[in-house]
Design a protein around this nucleic acid. Structure first.
Lengths: 205, 205
DNA sequence: GAAGTGTTTGACCAGACGGTCAAGATCACG
DNA sequence: CGTGATCTTGACCGTCTGGTCAAACACTTC
């Protein structure tokens, strides 16, 4: 799959610079909308130099997605089946919301890819992602059976959490167009809203 | 703005055919990813013929977005400030979910546009959309004041409804990769989940 | 400081893409 | 059925874009 880790310090530095520039460009224009010239300019390198480090436009995109997938799913793994159900889930919601605020580019990169049918990461979704989600869904189902959580479909619960939190990154312009915040203050209101909302909906009767 | 309505029956038919084909192509590839050749092929017309009806690729895209915006927002207008708060909102959620199932292309078209910064419809968001949302948010706020709805931030409530419902259209491949439904059965579970979820979260204590 | 490896780039290419144009086909209507 | 307006298309154009290549440059090691 991925080629062996970069060896020289120059390689390491430039690969990082390129991936960062590519994240910026891909996330705002989509794969097809991004050009190598844009990425090269953002990275401060020449186009042929880009292609010296990554063989093709595709290779950059794939490297980005693969490198980010794990980071992106990490919070889900941290849900502790031994913890208090409602608080574990609310904490997960808030963690995801924080990521939407702090890493909107990463969120939009995935959004772009998935909206267009995930042509490049479908395998990862059907494999790694499905396995992890199914596992966590089973843990949540157990909580429901034990009566420690309001009765909910675990899969759809997870989808709703992804949707409500990533919305603030993916649909940022729309949210901003409506709320007109100066900076990221609206994330405070979102935090409060989502915490209260999920706590109400998940606390067993 | 838009040129006068089509006159001849051929014009009417072909404009419709083109917009339908363009919806298909733009929604799956994004603006930049779509080509006039693809749209022409999908419409069963030659490329120059496309450009006879719509002067440019941009014109097709804009015509689509403008034509769809109203349909897309219609359900929000139907929330009746004189109705029963919780049921009005739950009905809105289910209506939006139904649209995600029946018109996923329209949803993805907007998603594509907004994720990439809404370069072509920012004005509409800042104008028409903001006005309507603010109006409806005020009505919801009134319900909260009257104690007929659990205390929630109306704007963020609306965002959450958009997010949770459109998720099933925009992130369709991801949902399908995880749930592996044969057709659209999973929308039944989603309906049940969202109805119960919003009812629990919105019913005043 | 020579030699070999790793890095950078200007010039270039082939294909794709949005758009034009002039000529031909078809339609509406008196 | 003739004639003007509407509709359709093959051929073509300029630009953009992903990618190549050979030559130049830099860095490390002995």
């Amino acid at each position: 799959m991925t080629t062996a880790a970069p060896q020289t310090r120059i390689q390491k530095r430039n690969r990082e610079v390129i991936l960062n520039a590519a994240l910026e460009v891909f996330s705002t224009h989509g794969f097809r909308g991004a050009t190598l010239d844009q990425i090269a300019a953002a990275a401060g390198l020449s186009k042929p130099n880009l292609l010296y480090y990554f063989g093709s436009k595709d290779a950059i995109h794939i490297a980005l997605l693969e490198g980010l997938m794990e980071t992106w799913l990490a919070p889900l793994k941290e849900i502790d089946p031994k913890g208090e159900p409602v608080e574990e889930l609310v904490a997960y919601v808030l963690h995801k919301l924080q990521m939407a605020r702090d890493f909107p580019r990463e969120s939009r990169l995935f959004a772009n890819e998935i909206v267009q049918g995930a042509p490049r990461i479908a395998p990862q979704i059907d494999g790694l992602l499905k396995a992890l989600v199914d596992e966590k869904a089973a843990e949540i189902a157990r909580w429901v059976e034990e009566g420690r959580l309001a009765p909910v479909d675990p899969h759809h619960l997870i989808f709703s959490i992804w949707a409500t939190t990533q919305h603030y990154a993916d649909f940022d312009v729309q949210v901003r167009g409506i709320l007109r915040p100066k900076g990221t203050e609206h994330f405070d209101a979102a935090t409060e809203f989502l915490a209260a909302f999920y706590r109400r909906a998940l606390t067993p009767a």
